[in-house]
Nucleic acid binder design. Structure first.
Lengths: 344, 344
DNA sequence: TTGTAGGCGTTATCAA
DNA sequence: TTGATAACGCCTACAA
C-alpha cells in the first residue's frame, strides 16, 4: 500500500487558508476581508492594502463551494455541445470562454455526442451545480430536458438555430436557408444532377437537407436516388466511402453537396484517388468552411458559419438576460456566407 | 427593462428542494435521506423506497456546492490541455471522461492555448474549486504552477510525456524516440535529405525535433538548413506555406518530417498544387495519425499515438493514487507505433 | 439502522 | 466604513 492522498482527512484538513485566517492576521472581521476582495471600493484604502498583503503572504484562495453555497450563485455556466471533435463547436466554445471568463464565470462543458439521451443525463448532473446560465445547442431535446430548462430558473440560450416559435432566446442562422443557398449556387453554376450526402441526422443536418430538397424541387430537378444518408458519426473516411456508394447508385451525378466539410474532404479524396476530376466531372460543396477548406486541392466551396460570433453572442445574451437587458424570445440571426472556391 | 432572471433573490430562492424537505416528507431525519442517496445499503429497504419516491415527487436535486463544502471533496477533476482544436486532446479528454464519469467525477477543462502563463492563470482559478485531482499536459510549467501542483494536496498526473526524473506520476510515451523513429523510417526508405518542420514550439515538439536531429546526426546527414520553425499555432494552411518556404531554401529536399499531421496535410496540399509528386519527388511523414491521415491521397505516413488510452490511464492513475494503489513516481509508457503509408 | 450535534467557508442582512 | 449574526445545504463523527 502506497501513501494515500492526504485523505482529505476531514474538515478541509490542515491546509486551507480561510477568510477568517486572513481577517485574524489583519485584525479585522472576515466579512471585511470578503468585501475587500469582492467590492474593494467599499473598504478604506488603508485596510484594503493591508488585507491584500495578508492575502498574498498567507496564500489565501477563495473557496468556490462556500461562495456558491452562501451566495446562491455558482458563477458557473453550463454549455452543452454535440461534439468536441468538431471545429465548429470548439470555435463556439472559445467565443463563449472569451466573453464569460473576464466576467468571472466558469464553464462546464457537456459533450452530448449528438445524443439527446446523453444530453438529458448531462443536464441532470450539471444542474446539481446550480448553474447561473445554460447555453445549449439547438432545439431538439427530450421532453425531460425541455422541462428541466423551463424549471431551471436561470437564463437559457439556444445556439446554432433560430426559433420559429420566437419564444426562446437564441442565436444562430437558418440552417434551411443554408441548404437552399448551397444548392442554388450549384444550380446557378449549371449543375443539374446534384446529390446530397448526410450523416448523423441531427436536427440541423435535417434542416439543411430540407433546404436542398426545396431548392431542387423548385428547380424541378429533385431526385431522391441522388441522396445518401447514414446515421453514423461524421468523418473524412465516411465521406469517401459514401461518395463511392452514391456514385455507384447515381453514376450521372454532376455535383455533390455534403452536409459538412469533413465529408466533403472525404469526397474530394475519393475523387482524387479514382481520378474523377473536380469540378470537371463532379463538383463538390461542403458546409461550415473549416480552416482547411481553403487549402485542399481543389479548394472547397463551402458555407462559412460565424460560430465564434455565435459563442460570443450567446454568452452576451446570457449576461443580458441576467440583467433584464434583453427581451424574452429574442432571436439573433448571425447569418452565413457562401464561399465559392475551386471545387464548384 | 425586461424581466430579470429570478434574481436569485437570496437564500437559494423559493425553488430549491433540500434534503430536509425530502426528510420531512418521509418523516425521517435528513441524514437518513443523505445516506439513502449515497450509501443505499446502509438504509433499510422499506425506507429507501419511500425516500426514493419522495425524491422523485419533490424533484430533489443534490446541491454540489453544499456537498463539496461539507465533505471537503469536490468530486471534480481539473484537466489542463494545450488545445481543444486538436484531435489529440479531444481523444484524451474522452478517455478521461469515460473513466471518471462513471465514478461520479465532474471534469473541469482548462485550455491553456499552448501558453504556460495562461496555464498558470487557469490553474489558480481552478484551484478555488478544490479539485480532487489534477491531470495536466506535460512537464513544462512555470515555477508558480510547479509550486501550486506541489501544494495542491491532491493527486497530479502528467500526460503525454515520461518523466526522466521518475519523480512524478505520468503516462505517455517518449517524444524523443518518436522523432527518432520517424526519421529512421525515412532513412531506411533511402531518403537522405530529410527536412523537419516545427511550429508552436511546445516541449513535446522540441523533443521530437531532438529525436530527428539525433537520428540525422547518427546517420551523418544532419543539415540545419533543412529545418524550418515558426512559433505560430499549427494549421493546415501554415503547413502549406512553410513547405513552400522550405523548398525554396532547400530545393534538394527528398523527404519532409512534419511535427504533426495538420502540417503534413498542408505539405501534401502544397505538393499537389505545385505538381510535386509524393513520395516520388518528396516523401512526407506526419505525427499523431489523425483520423483523416488514412484517407488523404497519397495516404499519410505517421506515428500513431494512443491518446485515448493515455486519457483512460491518467484517470485511472488518479483514482489509484487516491486509494494508495500506486507507487509515487510511476511512469506508464503507452508506446507508439509508426504507420507507414503511401506518402513515404 | 437511525438520529443528534456541529461545522465546512462564505455571504446577506441588519445594525453600529 | 465596519462588524455581529445567521444562514446556505450537506456531511462527518459520534451516539442511541
Amino acid at each position: 500500500m502506497y501513501p494515500k492522498m492526504p485523505g482529505r482527512a476531514r474538515r478541509s484538513a490542515a491546509g486551507q487558508v480561510t477568510l477568517s485566517d486572513v481577517a485574524a492576521h489583519v485584525g479585522v472581521s472576515s466579512i471585511t476581508v470578503s468585501r475587500a476582495l469582492r467590492t474593494p471600493e467599499k473598504v478604506s484604502e488603508a485596510l484594503r492594502a493591508r488585507i491584500e498583503e495578508a492575502v498574498q503572504t498567507l496564500g489565501y484562495r477563495p473557496n468556490h463551494a462556500a461562495r456558491a453555497l452562501a451566495s446562491a450563485r455558482s458563477h458557473t455556466v453550463v454549455v452543452l455541445v454535440p461534439s468536441l471533435a468538431n471545429e465548429v463547436f470548439v470555435d463556439t466554445l472559445s467565443g463563449i470562454y472569451e466573453t464569460l471568463h473576464p466576467k468571472g464565470y466558469q464553464i462546464l462543458i457537456g459533450n452530448t455526442r449528438y445524443n439527446t439521451e446523453e444530453e438529458e443525463r448531462l443536464l441532470s448532473a450539471y444542474l446539481a451545480h446550480n448553474p447561473d446560465g445554460i447555453l445549449i445547442t439547438g432545439f431538439d431535446h427530450t421532453p425531460a430536458v425541455e422541462a428541466q430548462l423551463a424549471n431551471s430558473r436561470c437564463p437559457v440560450v439556444h445556439m446554432m438555430e433560430l426559433d420559429e416559435r420566437k419564444e426562446r432566446l437564441c442565436v444562430g442562422f437558418s440552417q434551411f436557408e443554408c441548404g437552399k443557398a448551397m444548392t442554388r449556387h450549384l444550380l446557378d453554376k449549371g449543375y443539374t444532377r446534384i446529390g446530397f450526402m448526410a450523416v448523423q441526422g441531427d436536427a440541423r443536418t435535417l434542416k439543411r437537407w430540407e433546404g436542398y430538397r426545396a431548392a431542387m424541387q423548385e428547380a424541378g430537378l429533385y431526385d431522391e436516388t441522388r441522396e445518401i444518408y447514414v446515421p453514423d458519426s461524421s468523418s473524412v473516411g465516411l465521406g469517401a466511402q459514401l461518395t463511392a456508394q452514391l456514385l455507384e447508385r447515381a453514376p450521372d451525378l454532376d455535383a455533390l453537396f455534403c452536409c459538412n466539410d469533413d465529408l466533403a474532404y472525404g469526397a474530394l479524396f475519393h475523387c482524387q484517388r479514382q481520378q474523377i476530376s473536380v469540378p470537371g466531372r463532379l463538383a463538390i460543396g461542403g458546409f461550415n468552411d473549416l480552416a482547411a477548406s481553403a487549402w485542399t486541392v481543389p479548394s472547397l466551396t463551402s458555407i462559412a458559419t460565424p460560430r465564434h460570433e455565435i459563442g460570443q453572442r450567446a454568452a452576451t445574451m446570457f449576461l443580458q438576460q441576467l440583467d433584464g437587458q434583453i427581451a424574452p424570445g429574442t432571436a439573433y440571426d448571425v447569418g452565413f456566407e457562401l464561399v465559392a472556391r475551386e471545387s464548384s
